[in-house]
Design a protein around this nucleic acid. Structure first.
Lengths: 194, 194
DNA sequence: CCATCAATGGACAGCGAGTTCAGCAAGGAG
DNA sequence: CTCCTTGCTGAACTCGCTGTCCATTGATGG
């Protein structure tokens, strides 16, 4: 026993988990989250059934494990691949997030599809709310509660993201969506906080 | 054969459907949509299993049937129980909708719970988008697409509604939420359309 | 080189969806 | 009021998916 930080001591374990994670993401992009069965997963990952349950309690547990990368992208720092210029303006998560979603379009679409009822939207919203809370100036004593503002911004972002991903006709770039997001959300923000 | 407009000719049919609809709503308020099984439904409604499938293809079909009341509330006219004054200002659906949700809190909460992944949010959003489209002045040729604006408003409303229903600490009234909604969304709207 | 630990795979019980059918009861038309 | 249409019944059945168990095999790290 290596007593490493609670993860991946054995190469076999790492291999198995990576295979399962990739299988889930691939299958989600194809069929949507809830259409994916455990039988699908273990077949795609080429892993025994009992092996799956050795690592994860169920499908949702595996999904949680897959979400860590996403959390890392929004969460702390000013986003890894912010690209050009300084992302020191407010709501810095927006553009990197949109770019990443644009690159993984089928997967991102499956994740934000409301009809398919992914529990994922809830997770994403929570992460967003925390990211925004960290960015907003704390001293906001208006008639509008801070929590309401947080959910307002997160809800707007998710609404635009979902619309963009499922829109077949017009083909906007991540940069355009970012502009639209800011154009819509900034006036309301200014009106409420300083 | 009476050839009536495709609905409820026989009293037995009406009785059975009403029983099933009420059962679904009651059970959703208790357990959430996806925890409700067909066995639950027919037991609560006191109806045979095959009877259920005589009327609905599945659970989702029954849910659709339950949603007509909701569509009626938002859809056409300036909302049935608008109450005081003239609701001729923009976004007239907001206050009646919030009042209704406040009266049916447990049910409304179950419907908007993202963790429980109700397909219902998708339906509601679609109805909202159409209602807003009907209200917005059609001539909006800005840099921001009309569709984006529609989803922006609907997304904001749903985000605030969800937050409000699941907020345990602060207890706001429907009127307060309506005010917050307008305070946040109006500046962005004005900035984009005329 | 060896003890450990993960992977295997097949069998199993449990649950929920959706179907079928022969028999029964209630409704509506005349 | 009568009769025939129509909907309800309820139980049994198939099917697919979940989650568990266990004896066995084989790779891994010390």
């Amino acid at each position: 026993m290596v007593t490493s930080p609670e993860s991946a001591t054995d190469r076999r374990v790492r291999r198995t988990r990576r295979a399962l994670q990739e299988a889930l993401l691939a299958l989600m992009a194809e069929k949507g989250y809830d259409a994916v069965t455990v039988a699908d997963l273990i077949e795609r990952a080429d892993v025994g059934r009992s092996t799956f349950y050795n690592h994860y309690a169920d499908k949702a547990d595996l999904l949680d494990d897959c979400l860590d990368g996403l959390r890392a992208m929004i969460g702390p720092g000013p986003a890894p691949d912010a690209g050009r210029g300084v992302p020191d303006r407010l709501l810095g998560f927006s553009l990197p997030f949109l770019r990443h979603a644009g690159e993984q379009r089928p997967l991102a679409r499956a994740m934000t599809d409301r009809a398919k009822a992914t529990p994922l939207l809830g997770h994403v919203e929570r992460v967003l709310v925390e990211a925004i809370r960290a960015e907003l100036p704390s001293g906001t004593a208006g008639p509008v509660p801070v929590e309401a503002v947080l959910h307002y911004v997160a809800g707007t972002f998710l609404a635009l993201l979902t619309w963009w991903l499922n829109d077949e006709k017009t083909h906007h770039t991540p940069e355009q969506i970012d502009q639209i997001f800011r154009a819509l959300v900034t006036p309301g923000l200014r009106a409420v906080i300083g």
